[in-house]
C-alpha cells in the first residue's frame, strides 16, 4: 500500500489554485485565436483581441485572468492502493485552497450561509469535491475555479425519452440563447445526458474539465456536439453578446446510461476563461 501525506495533497492543491487562475490552458488559448480568425463582426474581433491580450498580460504579469477566481471545484480519482496519512482528504484539499487563494492574491468569493448572513468565509473554502475510488496506486486531481456568472446560467431538465434528439437539442440551444451575454461568451457549454437528476448535473460539470478540442468518444455524440455548436453560433450572439459568429468555443457532452422512464439533461456553462488543471500524484 502506497502512503501519501495529507500535506502533500495540500501542497499540490495550493499550487494548482494559483496556476489555474493565472495561466490559461493552451487548449482554450488556441480556441480563442481560432475564433479571432473566423469572427466576422468588427466589435467581436475587438473583444477577442482584448481576451487574447488579457491572457498574455495575466501570464506575463502574474495577474489572475479574471477577478472571479471562482468556487474551487475538484474531481479526485483516488487509487485504491493509496493510503492517506495525517488527515482527511477534505481537510487536505481545503487547506490547499486556503493557502493557494491567500498566497496567490486570489479573490475569496465564498459565503458561509447562502440565505441569511452571506458572510464571507475569508479563505475561499469550502471547496466542492467529487471523489471516485479507482484501481491503482495513483491519485489524479482535477481542479477548476468556477466563476459565479457563468455558473448561474445552468439548468437541469428531466426530458422524456420521446423528446428524442430534437428535444434535447432544443433544450440546450434555447437555454444557451436565454443566457445570452451573461456568461461571458465565447463560452464552453458543458452538457450532461442520462443518469439521475443529480448525476446529470455532475456530468455537465465534468464536461467542462475536458480539453477544448476533444470530442466525446462515441461518434454519435461527437457529431451531435458539432451540430449543437453550429446551432448555437448561428444565433449570432457572438463574443460578449455584441453580435458575431463566435458565441461558443465548444460543446462537450458527457453521456451516462439512463432509466427506462427518463432522459435527464443538464447544461453547465463556462466563460471563455475555461480554467482547468490536472495533476497525477
Amino acid at each position: 500500500m502506497r502512503e501519501l501525506a495529507a500535506s502533500t495533497i495540500s501542497d499540490h492543491v495550493a499550487e494548482m489554485c494559483e496556476q489555474a487562475n493565472i495561466y490559461l490552458g493552451e487548449d482554450v488559448f488556441s480556441a480563442l485565436k481560432d475564433a479571432l480568425e473566423t469572427e466576422e463582426s468588427p466589435t467581436g474581433k475587438e473583444v477577442l483581441k482584448q481576451l487574447i491580450e488579457n491572457v498574455e498580460i495575466a501570464r506575463d504579469e502574474q495577474i489572475p485572468i479574471c477577478q472571479d477566481t471562482g468556487f474551487a471545484v475538484f474531481f479526485v480519482e483516488w487509487g485504491q492502493e493509496v493510503h492517506l496519512t495525517g488527515g482527511s482528504l477534505e481537510e487536505a484539499i481545503n487547506a490547499g485552497v486556503k493557502r493557494g487563494y491567500e498566497e496567490g492574491y486570489l479573490r475569496k468569493s465564498i459565503v458561509s450561509d447562502p440565505l441569511y448572513e452571506r458572510k464571507n468565509t475569508g479563505d475561499n473554502t469550502p471547496a466542492v469535491i467529487y471523489t471516485d475510488i479507482v484501481p491503482g496506486d495513483k491519485v489524479k486531481i482535477s481542479f477548476a475555479p468556477k466563476g459565479g456568472g457563468s455558473e448561474n446560467m445552468s439548468a437541469v431538465k428531466m426530458l422524456k425519452p420521446s423528446d428524442g434528439e430534437a428535444g434535447f437539442i432544443d433544450f440546450v440551444v434555447n437555454h444557451v440563447k436565454a443566457a445570452g451575454p451573461n456568461p461571458c461568451p465565447p463560452i464552453v457549454v458543458g452538457v450532461g445526458i442520462g443518469g439521475t437528476f443529480d448525476k446529470v448535473a455532475v456530468q455537465a460539470k465534468k464536461a467542462l474539465f475536458r480539453k477544448v478540442g476533444e470530442s466525446n468518444p462515441n461518434s454519435k455524440f461527437a457529431d451531435l456536439e458539432k451540430r449543437i455548436k453550429d446551432k448555437i453560433n448561428d444565433l449570432g450572439v457572438g463574443p460578449q453578446g455584441f453580435g458575431g459568429r463566435n458565441f461558443a468555443l465548444a460543446v462537450h457532452i458527457e453521456d451516462y446510461p439512463s432509466h427506462i422512464a427518463s432522459m435527464a439533461a443538464a447544461v453547465n456553462i463556462n466563460c471563455h476563461a475555461c480554467r482547468h488543471l490536472e495533476k497525477i500524484i
Binding site: V47, Q50, L51, E53, N54, V55, I57, A58, E61, I63, P64, I65, C66, Q67, D68, G147, G149, P181, C184, Q240, G241, F242, C271, H272, A273
Partner: peptide, 13 residues
C-alpha cells in the same frame, strides 16, 4: 455599458 467580461487582467492595467 459593458466592459469585456473576463478581461480582468487587461482592465486592471
Amino acid at each position: 455599458l459593458a466592459a469585456v467580461g473576463g478581461a480582468g487582467a487587461l482592465l486592471s492595467k
